[in-house]
């Protein structure tokens, strides 16, 4: 599987709806040099299921993870897929960027296409406060039930109540506003 094949298939299905498609390459290996390819693209949440179905038809599909970040008034999710495992040097990473507004953070669940995505979707619900429509199981996974905040959200006023400064100098640094700078 090559990145161009994946990109062509996606563009055929989604056309203009696949925004900013990009193939990033990296040279690897010392004696036998290879080009490793990563596909990056932006899509809308309404096109997600179609895009994932397209990938599933292309070859063996694996979802590595969904990563996410609080980007001000929107939440950005990145779906990291790997298409085409099972053949030497044949895997292409496909990364879809998806952004949803904070006042309506609903994304369609891809569990119906790829049941293995359930773990990572459940994780995103509790960490970022997004919702997945059609997810079969939306209970908490990693966080304790009594924790009522979404720790990756930057607009959680209550989060600091939960953070314990177990190391004294670290708390001092934070008071001066240096932590994370």
């Amino acid at each position: 599987m090559r990145a161009q094949e994946v990109l062509t298939a996606l563009q055929e299905k989604l056309g203009e709806r696949l925004r900013a498609p990009e193939v990033r390459t990296e040279a690897i290996g010392h004696k036998r040099t290879l080009e490793r390819e990563l596909v990056w693209a932006e899509i809308d949440r309404d096109d997600l299921l179609e895009a994932v179905r397209t990938l599933r038809e292309l070859g063996p599909l694996h979802i590595s993870i969904i990563s996410g970040v609080d980007a001000g008034d929107r939440i950005e999710l990145i779906y990291h897929f790997a298409v085409g495992y099972g053949t030497p040097d044949g895997e292409v990473m496909v990364n879809f960027r998806l952004s949803v507004p904070k006042n309506d953070p609903v994304v369609p669940s891809i569990c119906a296409v790829l049941p293995g995505a359930l773990t990572t979707e459940r994780e995103k619900i509790e960490f970022l406060g997004v919702q997945f429509s059609g997810i079969p199981d939306a209970r908490k996974l990693f966080l304790p039930d009594e924790l009522e905040v979404h720790p990756w959200r930057k607009d959680e006023p209550k989060l600091s109540d939960y953070v314990r400064y177990t190391v004294a100098w670290e708390a001092k640094k934070d008071e001066k506003g240096e932590a994370g700078a």
């Binding site: 004696k31 036998r32 495992y85 030497p88 990473m93």
Partner: peptide, 11 residues
């Protein structure tokens, strides 16, 4: 190591 070689695995 087979599907997505990295480090010296391509060799």
């Amino acid at each position: 190591r087979q599907d997505w070689p990295y480090f010296a695995y391509p060799d």
